[in-house]
Design a binder for these strands. Sequence first.
RNA 1: GCGCCAGUAGCUCAGCAGGAUAGAGCAACUGCCUUCUAAGCAGUAGGUCAGGGGUUCAAGUCCCUUCUGGCGUACCA
Length: 564
Amino acid sequence: MANLIIKVIEDLKISLAQSINEAIKDGKLLDNKIPDINIEIPADRAHGELSTNIAMVSARVFRNSPLNIAKIILDNLIVDKSLIEKVEIAGAGFINFFLSQKFFSDCLLEIKSMGQDYGKCDYGKNKKLMVEFVSANPTGPMHMGNARGGALGDCLSSVLKLAGFDVFKEFYVNDAGNQIEKFASSLDVRYRQIIEGENNVILPEDCYQGEDIKDLAYEFYKIYGEKYLSCDVKERKSKLVEFALPKNIDRMKKDMKKYNIFFDNWFHESLLYENDDVNKVIKMLSDKGLTYELDGAIWYKATQFGLEKDEVLVRKNGIPTYFASDIAYHYNKFKVRNFDICIDIWGADHHGHIARLKSAMESLDIDSSKLHILLFQFVRLVKSGEVVRMSKRTGKAIQLSDLLDEVSADSARFLFNIKEPNTKMDFDLDLAVKEDSQNPVYYVQYAHARICSILRSVPDSVREKLEKGNVCLDVLTSSEERQLIYNMALYTMQIISCARDFDPTRITKYVIDLATDFHKFYNAHKVIFDDDEIMLARIYLCICVKIVISNILRLFKISIPEHM
RNA sequence: GCGCCAGUAGCUCAGCAGGAUAGAGCAACUGCCUUCUAAGCAGUAGGUCAGGGGUUCAAGUCCCUUCUGGCGUACCA
């Protein structure tokens, strides 16, 4: 499945290494260790399609000038002339490679023959990987942060899958512990307020203040009336939670569906309590002498591992902390379900949790480097140049569902994947609903629709020739055509680099670039015109661009319009 | 105070494992549709890459430091 450009680069590295070894053998270069050979993509195509800085990097090792070293390497260098037509030394000692017309033609043949599979590779082969994302608290509605995390997590999962990983997507439902207790108390107060009057029952400050709690209590009241007013508090609370929690979880599932996100599993935190897993990991830590009791609480000796302070595992009220159950959860991911790599996507406000979780994992003999935490910074919603905090319609804090009422899932998924996760972002509502080129998702979709339009106007006679396969691609020599082909040639490498860095946002930028290359080509050249040979080649090129663009849109679950 | 993240054109941001002359879009100005979708393209103008040191053949990119902003520093999650 080796992709053409990747193969060319690998071969080139071998050739360069051979050439250098040859020169060492001949005494032309000092017999020292050769630095790693890097092949780069020059920013300026005047410098060729590929280049290496090996002569500069090795100047010190060989105690020679970069230009001399480059000359010596070039003297011995044997490359595949059918794919690399020119090699030159430039600048301070770069060695630049110019790819042949055959390479460009072969790229198109590869794309066309792989079709929907173009971009697939085995970079992550045999690696079982989990992406856990969104994992919104089920005590309330989902917010803008969940929207960003959701788009990032889902698209990252797709990229990793394409890169060959065995990907499992999970939503962690925090349906246990302290915040459920808080949820219960909040519901309880609201329920009693309905019956006894708002002024007669006070909502404590540490309860959830949101309107959604009131709504849930009211729904409960509509069904059961005052039935649970006089019963035991504990029973009332548990009835309220039993009623409200599934409703919230259902709503999250609906929101996710609307957002085109489907999880392989919704993992309930409560399961860790039912199976006593939380107590088990606490006991494991205790058995290693890593816990102690103070003020009625059980603490983890985090300071023993260089962290700032020790952390509570079990509160004095007996309820384990989020930290404790998260240790159990990650123990489950690695030691029970045997994932090789786990990626957690968190809002940046959780970053303080990383060090202690990793520390606890190491204490449980789990290699914490297998856990990657992807942090994303906060999102602000902006409309008409102003920050929007509340929904005008409902008067409540902006929720994910409000966003999706205004903005298409296509637009939201794309725009949340434009900015690198670890930078703050303003989500521009005006831009997101705009159906023109300013909205990058339309810009890309438009390129696809344009191609479809061209393909629709291909004359039947030409279509027949195309199907017979009599296409000579060597006539695609203009700078626009070459740029377009070369960019498509790099797609698989882009996928690998995104998978390596766990960053889906580069693919978004890549497809925008590709769309630009296509629009430029479109304006510079006519596809349907009187020269059959060139027409056939350009149609073939268009088909390939359509393949790559639609592969990416499909990857990100964004619609692929044929007309716009 | 300490820790994490950020600071690039008037605005919003790219800059992919340090590479060649720092790039887009928006806003401003100028062109390109009797010809495959102008939701497009070409051009002009716009910069002390927050400041200062350092490492390197080469620094927006790495290190140190100062300044500015966000977040964290709970028996919240």
